[in-house]
Every structure is written in C-alpha cells, then in structure tokens.
Design a protein around this nucleic acid. Sequence first.
DNA 1: ATTGGCACTCTTGCCTACAGAGTGCCAAAG
DNA 2: CTTTGGCACTCTGTAGGCAAGAGTGCCAAT
Lengths: 340, 340
Amino acid sequence: MTERQFEVVMAIVFEYIHTGEPVGSRALSKKYLTRISAATIRNEMSDLEELGYITQPHTSAGRIPTSRAFRVYVDSILEGKRERSPELADRLLDLKRQRADFEEVLAYSSQLLSRATQTVALAASAPMAQVRLERVEFVWIDLYHALLLVVLQGRLIHQKLLNFPCEMSREILEEISRRINTVASGRPWDDVRGGLQSFVLKELTEVAESCRLAMSEIDSLLSAENFRFFTTGVHHILGLPDFQDIGRLQAILCLLEEEDALTRMVRRYSVKDGLNVIIGNEDPDSELGAFSALFSSSTGKGTRTVLGLIGPVRMDYERAIAALETVWDGLSGDGDSDRP
Amino acid sequence: MTERQFEVVMAIVFEYIHTGEPVGSRALSKKYLTRISAATIRNEMSDLEELGYITQPHTSAGRIPTSRAFRVYVDSILEGKRERSPELADRLLDLKRQRADFEEVLAYSSQLLSRATQTVALAASAPMAQVRLERVEFVWIDLYHALLLVVLQGRLIHQKLLNFPCEMSREILEEISRRINTVASGRPWDDVRGGLQSFVLKELTEVAESCRLAMSEIDSLLSAENFRFFTTGVHHILGLPDFQDIGRLQAILCLLEEEDALTRMVRRYSVKDGLNVIIGNEDPDSELGAFSALFSSSTGKGTRTVLGLIGPVRMDYERAIAALETVWDGLSGDGDSDRP
DNA sequence: ATTGGCACTCTTGCCTACAGAGTGCCAAAG
DNA sequence: CTTTGGCACTCTGTAGGCAAGAGTGCCAAT
C-alpha cells in the first residue's frame, strides 16, 4: 500500500466515523486531500477496493471502510502518543481518594468510562492460578452454614455461603481456618492446594465431607474462570443511529447478560497485557457482530484485571482509546497501594 | 358499564394482546361475540370510547384499549382463581433442593421468571427497620481495614468493607463485635441503635471515630432503601414487535440500570403485600412509560422481598400472572425453612 | 333495541417520475 | 506514465398519484 493510499484510507475512515455515510471521492478531495483531484482518488479507491480495504454498498454509492481499514486506522492511532484527557482527571482523583473496596472501584471505573465514551463499559477482575492467599476465614452462621471468606493480596475478598452436609461447630470451623491459614497464608493457592487437602482431611476425619466441600469451594472461587463483571451504560448504544435494526442490539444484549459469554470473550481478547482492540467481525468467531471492543488488561499480584468498552464498529476510536487509557491509569495506578 | 360493554372490553383487550393491531367491530362480532352484530358493537364501542376505555388511532381504524381497559381486564383475571403452571414446578424443585444463599435463590428466581414469560424479571430484597440482627462480625483485614458482616435472621448476610480513620487491632475489633452482639443479637436494629451508639462510644473513646463509622455503616446497610436487585432478560423486550421505536426502550433500560430509580419504583408499587399490577401510564408519574409491571411482595422476619416483571403494556397478563405466582410460591414457600 | 346497508375516511402498498450523488471510463494534458 | 476534467451511466431516496382494504358513522327498516 502506497503512502497516498494510506492517506485515503485514513481519510475515509475518519469521515465515515463522523458522518456514518458512504464517503465519495469528491468529498475526500474537498475536505481532506485538496492536493489531488477527485478523479485520482477514484482510481485509488478502485485499487483499495480490490485490496479489501473498502466496499461499495451498491454501484454508484460512496465507499465504506471494511474492518481491515479500521484496523489500519486504529493501529495508526495506537502507534502515536496520546495525551490523557484532562476532563476525567478530576473524577479520577475522587476514585483514588475514596480508598474503597476494589470491587467498588471497578464498578465506579466502569461507570466513569461509560459516561465518558457513551458506550457500554465493562470492568472485571478474577484471581489467577498463582494468586497468593492472605487469609481464609469461616464465619459461623449456624450448625449447617458458614460464610467462607477468602482474602487475597490487595484486599480482594471472595466469598461464598457454604451449606455443610454434617454439623459443624464454631470450634471446628476455627480449627479448620487455623490449619488452612498456617499452611496457605502468603503462598500461591496452586502450590498448597494438593498438600492442604490431604493434610486437612487426614486430621479431621469426622467432618471430612464438609472439609472436602470447603476445599472445593475455595478452588472454584479462585479458578481463573471466576470473573466478577461490572457492566454499565447499555442504554447508550440504543441511542446510536447505527442500530435501527434491533437484531444486532439483541445479540449484544444477550452477550452482556450471560456471564459465561462475557468470560469467554474477556479470556480470548485479553491474552496479552495492555490495550487490545477488536474490530467488528474481523474475527468471524467473535460474538461481537457489528460491534467493536477495546480491552485493557493486566495481571498483578495474582489477579487479572480487565477494563473495556463495547461500541459500534463506527466509533470514535481516538476518544475511546484516550478515555480507556485515562481510566485505566486511574484504576491500575499505584496511587495509594489500593491495588495489584 | 353494562354487562355487554364489559364483554366487549374484555374481547377487545384479549384480541389486541394477541394481535397487536387495532380491533374492528366486524372481527369482534365474528370471533368473540357471535350473538350480536357488528353494527351493535359499533354502537357500544362509540359509548366505550366516550367512557375512556378505548381509543382510535385515527378515524376509520379499529379501536385500541386504553390503560383503563387493561385495568378492567387484569382485575377480572385477578378475581378468578388461577392454577399454577405445571411446567415451572420441576424447576422450582431444583430451586428448593439446592438450599443456597438467599441471594442466589433470588437471582435464580429472576432467571426462571424471565425465561418463562419472555420479559424482564426483577427480584429484590431489603431489610426493614424492624429487622432482627442475628450477629455482627468484623473480619480483620489489616490495621485500617475490616470487612463488616451483618447476619440477619434467615441467613441473610449484608457486608461492607470498612476503611478506618485510625489503627484498629484485631483485639479491638473483636471487642467491638462482642459488645454489639451482647446488646443487639436477636433484637430489632431500630430498638438498639440509639443506646448502642452511646454505649460503644463511651467505652472505646480512643477509637471513637472508627466506631462511629462502623455504626453508621451498619445503619445504611439496614436502611429500608438498601435493596439488592437481580434483573434478568433485558434482551427479551428487544424482540417484541411493539418497540420499533427505540426511544421507549432506552427509557426502560435507563430505569433498569439505575438502582435508585428501581428502588423508587419498587418502594412505590409494592406498598401492600401480595400481587400488584401497574399498567402502562395509568399513573402519569411512573417511569414505566409504555411498559407494565407486575410486583409480588411480602414482608417476613424483617425482610422485604419483591419479585416482579416488566413487559409491554400489551403483554399476556394471564400467562405472566400465572408464572409470577408460581415462581413466587417457590421463592417464598416454606419448603425447607430457608426463608422468611 | 337491534340490524343491514351505504357513504365516507384514512391507511397502506405500489407504481412512476425525478433529482441527487457517485462512479467508471476516456481522452487530453503534464 | 500519472493526473485531471468531462460525461454518460447507475442506483437511491423522495414525492405524488392511484387503487384496494378496512373500519367507522349514520340512517332507515325491523
């Protein structure tokens, strides 16, 4: 692709993002590429169509960029340096000042991002296999129930109400906590789970069944699948002019309502740390359909954190990327040691 | 309103619910009221329009029932006895068998109801002012943080991560728990909060600020406003033929995403126990717009539980009411003493 | 009080015509 | 060989006109 073809692609994507309508050669020549005439641009466009960067909805309409063109556009934005949008800075100060529960911070980040970009925002975190336990606690409720609390590094807390198959006194629960904490505190769960299981079971044979239950619940709480999601701003995408036809909206709503689907998506598109951009149906297996997604993710202290947004393919990537990076900085920043 | 007018209203509503189109006199005469002729029905319809039960979208179109007609229709359904739909019974067995966390049961009920009715379902619970505390527990995290657990009757657990303004040792936290539990266990929070506050503060002056924080957090956890919502099935209402026009959808999505708005609505429309039906813009202040809502609610053991669904005004109330009652029975049933 | 008949009204779908926008190609100029 | 202006062609979207269909309102007869 020549330098000039690149410029044409960039101009087409830019114009299309801002108008939503097929872009004609004359408009390009007038608004962006005044040096070259419409006829020349027509020739270039003809070539670009063959190369798969643009398409015509029908003969004698302007051109629409394909996902390939969006990819070029987005990559070009990502290459350059962006400055963080200053409007969000104030809000981020609040976010850092209130040293709240990390889950609250996630929820707030999601809200912030959604409002800033007018798209659906999504924040999530999940423990990794290498996560280190701070402490495990059983809060006795009654003879058959206890609340299992797993405190991870960085004040992340996971919990589950347990229903034991046999009677469990307060003392036995304390005994189990003590044993688990002795072995597991400060160590990666993956390293201790094997030894711990046999150790606890051997010592406490009369409540073995309940112990096994407790161990397996800790296991599933700490499994890498166990993302906790915060989605915000679904109503924003209803207002977009792109989605008159409701079918696509329905598809994305189904996706957002099903935690399994979200998990699949997040696991698939945040494999490498940092900012990932997934465009429309660039990947035919994605469940995004006519939507694009940006994900920023990182792994720290055994916890995987993801912040992302989902919007129309024809979204203002420049603004979206800037907003995501700003909020991400606030979320993962080492402001006051609130986070991995 | 005469007996025959009532029949006409019922027939119009029934037909409109099932076709979605204005109902003409001829169709009524043919399908529902074969004894009387179309002309007679036209006369009745003319009267019913004056009475405000039906409207014409334009001259020479069929009639559309107003919210007043829907009210008559729904009241007539509610008067009769309904049998519980047997298809849901199997699922409810599962729901009862797994004696899970009450919040999990709520979430599952919401899913069940949503799937059964193809509408948005909503389940919620909140403590009442008269709620009795089972126990209060502080789980020490570090010198400045603890997890506050408030265990209510019926194994309902509320929690909040606290961030203390001064150092709090494990021992002090245990001391505070012990004091609170001595006074508050098994008693209504409203009765003890006043005395408790001064009692705890007097004894533990050096950590007074932190104690005050803890007390006020318990207060807000137990405030009647503090509903926990589970909404499911938003994608269903996108498929409905009624909402081509996206504006109304956006309104309802905003409502569903904002907990404050949901709380307002639930508090307003579940004042009396049992089944409440709110129709379209029968109440001009409601934020439902073009939607109807059914709410079933009850107060038991100091906890208010609400199960409801939101669908188009033109919804199949008969099915919806049956489904809601079935799931509600399962949710609030005394199956195995899991609930208020 | 009820009913059949008839004129009137309003929507919907369909066809045509037409303006507008954009391309593709060609021939001329650089 | 590249660039450019010109021109014919194609497709969309909109507006107007027309006919069919559905439903009402009214009136006179039962």
